[in-house]
Simulated scan of single mutants.
Amino acid sequence: MKVLILGGTAWLGHEVGRRAIKRGHAVTCVARGKSGRVPAGAAFIRADRDEENGLGAVAGISWGAVVDVSRQPGQVRRAVRDLNAVRYVFVSSGSAYADQGPLGQDEDAPLLAPLAADVMETMEDYGQAKAACEQAVLAQFGPRRSMIVRAGLIGGPGDTSGRTGYWPLRFGRPASDDGTVLVPDAPLLPVQIIDVRDLAVWLVHGCEEGLGGVFNAMGETHPFGEHIAVARKVAGHEGPIATAGASWLQRRGVQEWAGPKSLPLWLADSQWQGMNARSNLRAKAAGLKLRPLAETLADTLDWERRAGAGRIRSAGLTMREEAALLAELAALRA
């Protein structure tokens, strides 16, 4: 099958291309070429999708499947207008849902209003932009020839955000001399991660099997306490854990979820906790296979260690920040 990947040089697109080539497909990647190299064995066409005729070089070819991970509605609107394909696979996001609070929602839950503009200016519009991209794909290709994949948090080796690597890495290298690690006191908080490798394999499977419709591509939901226990185990951590409540952490400027001075995956606001507890039953029924959480975290830890201490991580506490918080917590409890 001729597979066109709109991208292919960054994390997920590269993994999809690699898996498709391994399955014997002829893969072409269209990208600006600024995020890295395409997978070995893939053809590469340099193009800028922000241009009106940016996909002109591939518009006259008949593709078995197109895989698109864009977040910009204009890019997707032009792609579905110009490309000739049997199937269009669009990787959307759970952020497209209107309500992130309820647990267990499936694909029929309401979406945000689609972004009218062609360009998403800020991440505040991310969910609406993805909804607009979905709308464009479905309008052109219809539900049978479209595979809309609303991904959850993607993790695994190569996760430069640090969200899946932070905990096993920190348990493997504590900030304190006695091995204590600071953990939010939120043992029942839902956490849901899909391994990038599992997602890529299933996207290729969808191209091969002609899957159509809308799917939540999400991992299994685990309580935060269980996630922490697995991270400790893969890192071989036997030191103490110091827990702190949400209000204590927030008063000291510790952020939720991701970003600088954060405790990754932690969410104090219940109105967002449903984003990590969505139903993945439809995707699993359509062939999505998920590896154990321990395998994802162990492999991510190996990747983090290979990446080295010099890599800039965009999520988590620095060693100095955590040591200061642990010292303050210990003094308070003395």
Rank of each mutant, 00 (worst) to 15 (best):
G36K: 03
R37H: 12
V38H: 02
A40D: 15
A43L: 12
F44Q: 01
R46K: 12
D50N: 14
E51A: 13
E52I: 13
N53S: 14
A59V: 14
G60P: 07
G60K: 10
I61M: 08
A65Q: 04
A65H: 00
S70E: 13
R71K: 05
P73F: 00
P73Y: 00
R81F: 08
A85V: 11
Y88T: 14
V89E: 06
F90M: 14
G94L: 14
G94V: 15
A98M: 09
A98H: 07
Q100T: 08
P102D: 01
P102W: 00
D106V: 08
D106E: 07
E107M: 02
D108V: 13
D108T: 15
L111K: 03
P114G: 08
L115E: 04
A116T: 15
D118I: 05
D118N: 12
V119G: 07
T122L: 10
T122Y: 07
M123C: 12
D125R: 13
Q128T: 11
A129Y: 05
K130P: 05
A132D: 04
E134P: 07
Q135I: 09
Q135V: 08
A136R: 00
L138I: 11
L138P: 04
A139W: 07
Q140P: 15
R144G: 13
R145T: 05
M147C: 14
V149R: 00
A151L: 08
G155A: 10
